[in-house]
Amino acid sequence: MSALAKAQRRIEPTFGAATTGKVGMWIYLVTDAMTFAGLLIAYGILRAGNTQWPLPTSVLGIQFTAVMTFVLIISSVTMVQALDAAKHGDAKGAARWLFATVGGGLFFLLGQVYEYRHLIHEGFTLPSGNFPATFFVVTSFHGAHVFTGVTYLFIIAMGVRKGKFLDRGANKVEIAGLFWHFVDLVWILVFTFVYLI
């Protein structure tokens, strides 16, 4: 089978120029979004049913989390820059932007660890009430996604540095980017529902 025929087999014509890997990632992200939706719905129901629910802004460090949110947004920008460089065949530039994205993710994770330590020290622990319980479940589930994304992007960055993953419009970099942007997108909603409202 020719190289062109192999490449055509990997494209899902129903979805235009999208590859099967990209469509697969989208389907995974939709199912993952449902999991987050379930957790946020549970948070909403428990909160609505509790008249003693504290105002999150009075318990949580909003300014600190806003900085973490901003870093995650910036990491989405470094990710699109990485994809742009990869699509232009610039392996060195793409790897640099990918490592910057990994750095942003690590900063977020370290920020989350610092936040957890501070809250637990203040007596805000998992069994101490519905708000702490739902807070830790939702944010740590998201944190697990950030950790996965950081690992995923690190592996991709190492490959890109060696000149891999740049073929077929840097498809593998784009798929990894979709996951990372999803992690950012979900955090935007978690930050609003759990921290601000």
């Binding site: 129903t14 979805f15 235009g16 980017g177 942007h181 999803f182």
Partner: peptide, 12 residues
């Protein structure tokens, strides 16, 4: 914009 949905086919 970042996930490029704006440029994907409507089915996606």
């Amino acid at each position: 914009y970042y996930m490029h949905l704006k440029y994907e086919k409507k089915l996606l």
